[in-house]
């Protein structure tokens, strides 16, 4: 999910149809993907993901590349890309911050977190900072309801239990080129006799 990789991925089109190309390795990977499904169309989503991970977005040019690579109608790939919210139909900032404001997060301060980020970055939800570092987005439920408020970084790791301090820390980390680690949140023990919250499946 890094923008940098687009440097080796994007080049002059080989078939004259798209400004982007897949590498030989990626084309081989796509051939492997195709063997997993009885019909080519089924790899539309995985290949769009591959394209987005490579180029940072799936704008119409990238959609065209996917369509030509898979020999599917361009309109099909376009319709699919537009249906799913995680595909970026326009280039975004280097880091995309998806702040959940849905039900549980809304109850637990998701809007405050979003507001804090808006102030801090000086942009509104849906916008990108002028330096192209951050895009801020309001997201629907990301499935981390117990760990609200939270956000997802560029379609990848979740950062949970956000506080202003933690947000600052994450922004600094991202700005310095680092990505937050995956936070494993263990299952709390149910025993009433124990007050130990940290105990959990993988924590022994």
């Amino acid at each position: 999910m890094s923008q940098k990789s687009s440097d080796n991925g994007a080049s002059l089109s080989q078939n004259g149809t798209s400004a982007y190309t897949f590498t030989k390795e990626q084309l081989a990977e796509i051939e492997v993907l195709k063997t997993k499904y009885p019909e080519v169309q089924a790899v539309t989503l995985p290949v769009l993901w591959m394209a987005q991970d490579t180029f940072g977005h799936v704008d119409p040019e990238v959609q065209r590349l996917v369509a030509y690579t898979l020999d599917l109608p361009e309109s099909h790939v376009h319709g699919v890309a537009e249906f799913y919210t995680q595909y970026f139909k326009t280039p975004k900032g280097k880091h995309v911050l998806d702040v959940c404001t849905c039900l549980s997060c809304h109850l637990c301060g998701g809007m405050d977190t979003l507001g804090y980020l808006e102030n801090k970055l000086g942009i509104k939800a849906g916008e990108t900072t002028p330096d192209g570092e951050f895009t801020l987005q309001e997201a629907e439920c990301l499935g981390a309801c117990g760990y609200a408020p939270m956000m997802q970084i560029t379609n990848d790791v979740y950062v949970n239990h956000l506080t202003p301090e933690k947000v600052d820390q994450v922004l600094d980390q991202l700005a310095s080129g680092d990505t937050p680690d995956f936070e494993s949140i263990p299952m709390p023990l149910v025993s009433t006799t124990s007050n130990n919250e940290a105990a959990g499946g993988s924590d022994e």
Partner: peptide, 21 residues
């Protein structure tokens, strides 16, 4: 992997999405 659509949790929508639609 899905790509961001609640509706794909509906079982027949999930099938459409698996078929790449």
């Amino acid at each position: 992997s899905g790509a961001g659509a609640y509706i794909c949790g509906e079982e027949t929508s999930l099938l459409e999405s698996l078929e790449g639609k």
